[in-house]
Write a protein that binds this DNA or RNA. Sequence first.
DNA 1: AAGCCGTGGCC
DNA 2: TGGCCAAGGCT
Length: 375
Amino acid sequence: MPPRRAAAVARRVEAWFASNRRALPWRLEPRDPWASLVSEIMLQQTQAARVAERLPTFLARFPTPAALAAADEHEVLAAWSGLGYYRRARGLHACAKSLVERHAGATPPDVDSLRALPGVGAYTAGAVASIVFGARTPIVDANVARVLLRLEGADALLGSAAATAWCWANAERLVRAAASPGALNEGLMELGALVCTPSRTAGPRCGECPLASLCRARAEGRQRELPARAARPPRSEVHHAALIARDGAGRVLAQRRPPAGLWAGLWQAPTVESARRPTASEVARLVRLLARDVSHSGGFLHATTHRLVRFDLWQASAPVQIEDGAPMRWISSSDLPGLALATPHRRILSEALRSREASPARAGSVQRRGLRAGR
DNA sequence: AAGCCGTGGCC
DNA sequence: TGGCCAAGGCT
């Protein structure tokens, strides 16, 4: 992008952002560096509306790096519960410890120090450095990439190495031409989120776009087709048989998941995973250390990016024994808020606890209705 | 460097 | 209502 064009684009984006910015929780002035870092990590792969709901609570509990560093990892994961990509929570916890140990408990202002923190990549480091500290450094997230590829009418495949390098080079030219690097960067993202939307059906809102007269994709009528994207590979399908086991006090059994893979280290209703859907007798055999008999009580689908998880729920109809040293515990309703649970298991366990006073047969039907209604 | 890691809104 | 969509960091 030639310097004169870059200057025109930067000027228009900054002017548009000044009067079109949304009031979002992470845009409170003055910007708190720690709050900004937390918000940027929470915003990775996560929609703004979801972050807006959860950020204030998280920051109220962990207002400083020191507060987060001092917390137990499980408490951090519990505070992140439902947000997905739980590695981000562990990375943020490690970040906080690093800030306390190596940066006197402060969030550093320069891209390189930020970039060295766990879970902080080029985007997050550039966002904090430019938006909070005014550093003249570019950022490229999916919004920025879409805006730039359309603006220049580029055919590069979104996400390819070539497209990524091309986007960063052009974002660099724009931030060099900006009056305020932070406003330009935030403005590009906001423009992508509100105007230059990904929609292939309705198309982007070019009528409201400050860059419409400069946009090559618009001039060529290709704003719906660009940017080009690769086809997504099909999701693999897996079966999770979850056991709802109650003790005499109406508590339900929870188990810690393995330390790697899906929902690593989170708690769950005890679960047997398999490629094919197990029968009742197979489930009974697989969980025989836990329960002598089981009965099927409904199921539901849970889709993640790469998997389709088919949940089947099984009620334990005989007393359950906990193996010594097994990563299991009995939980009651009051334990739920403090537990790190993936979304489907929070549903399973809370439904099970809600119906804890019903008989086993009755509990099964309540369970089934509740879970089906929830979809 | 290709694949893994969640969730919820939209149609 | 099931399939589609979004899209940063790490290994």
